[in-house]
Design a protein around this nucleic acid. Sequence first.
DNA 1: CGACGACTTGACATCGATCAAGCGAGGTGG
DNA 2: CCACCTCGCTTGATCGATGTCAAGTCGTCG
Lengths: 259, 259
Amino acid sequence: MGNRAMQQRESADPGTQGEQTDPLLRLKARLCRTGGVQGPVEVDDALTVSRDVQQDHPVWADPARPQPIYVLQEGLAYSFAFLPGGRRHIDDIFGAGAICNWTGYSAPEYRCNLMFKAGSKIALLDRLRLRHALEHHPASAALFQRHELARTLRTSQRVRALISLPASHRLTNLLLDLQQEYALGGLEDEWLPFGLTQQEIADTIGITMVHVSRTLAKMAEAGELERRRGKFRLSRPDHLKRLLDYRDFFSPHPENQHA
Amino acid sequence: MGNRAMQQRESADPGTQGEQTDPLLRLKARLCRTGGVQGPVEVDDALTVSRDVQQDHPVWADPARPQPIYVLQEGLAYSFAFLPGGRRHIDDIFGAGAICNWTGYSAPEYRCNLMFKAGSKIALLDRLRLRHALEHHPASAALFQRHELARTLRTSQRVRALISLPASHRLTNLLLDLQQEYALGGLEDEWLPFGLTQQEIADTIGITMVHVSRTLAKMAEAGELERRRGKFRLSRPDHLKRLLDYRDFFSPHPENQHA
DNA sequence: CGACGACTTGACATCGATCAAGCGAGGTGG
DNA sequence: CCACCTCGCTTGATCGATGTCAAGTCGTCG
């Protein structure tokens, strides 16, 4: 099942990484975790390329060329667009195992700009081969669908907060989403890296970088947030989730989606 | 093909509306228009109920009960949710022929609150029968997919504006979306009704009702907007579209999506 | 006529943007 | 090793945008 995947795999630095780990391991783990199952995910046939990212690497939406399905193996990525004034807006963030342009799976004409942060690893899936694989494995197809529904719902939740709530709540919501993306990618340390610069955070939640800096400082002063050497820790995440009515759509158990 | 539809059709006021027009006429017209085709849309088999709305009529998301697919025959509707502070947020607006909860088609567990404004007409589609119909008519299925992709892209465009742009631009974007929904539903008059109260507009674009009032007044003073007896007209829509980089994702011709 | 809802208007307070300067860590060249 | 640069971030001063509170207008309906 994974033969073709292994054959076609490329690596930017084969020397340093000796182990032949599955490039889609994180993706499968995410899908199973979100779906609440343990079975296999039949997706290896769709894998074409796997590569590393040294510096922040943008991928521009090009209407003229087809865009493969981007899966983030490791690291952090985001999708973005530009506003009339020339400012950038970040639409969504992606952690390890995430699919960065799922809309393109069923709508080939869909394109989006993606930014892969330094240290990330990318895997590319072929749309048609993925379709072929999922048509033959309805259980796997259901996992993809379940997972992307969760992302859709989470995006709606964040968007509501970003449109209507003040800066501190917007920022809190983003940090909760970020924490969740890390957790879904297997990173559940107590202290988490921001992963994004304050400018990128600003472009995500629609305020200026200066205000991000001040808001972070205020949250730290209020005891909601701790910062240490470029990492952060939410002091009382459950309290914040209750405050924002933040729901976890990636949990396979609906009862966990409240508070 | 439409036999079952006709048999099961209900009408709240059979006396006043003598003509037996197709309840899904607007839907089909929208799908064909967006898809740039003229062929038939095979969806009649999924129709279960058609009814009128006298006063503003909310439909509450109930996780315990399955939700049919809501199609708006006539009038205006919107989906909404509540923010932590108890305030309401309006996520999207729907004109005649629109599908109000398309996400529920492929994700039965999806629920949303809907509000049908006074004077609307609703048609309900059965999810399974719709699935059955679309599986046998790939061309029709493609039309649905094309149409809902356009909605997704338009929502992303509006959300970006609502998160990052000042009130006047947010309001302009909403009015352009509203105008587009009307046009897709067959209403292309020079003067269009607001359809939403200023409070509803406020809940959509994330500002207060007082500020909506002031912003409308300013736009009128600036000559961008004309108001008369509860209706409005954008003086130079093309100018506004260029200003906001507003794209028409519902146009079947990609070249129209710019300016 | 009175009640009500939608909207408008004014005064004021608060939030967030803007502009400008400075700090500190990491990299680079001499 | 130091001087210097750059980048990400911080801080202060000020201004404009938006929210809040309150009063008032207007049209509709009974």
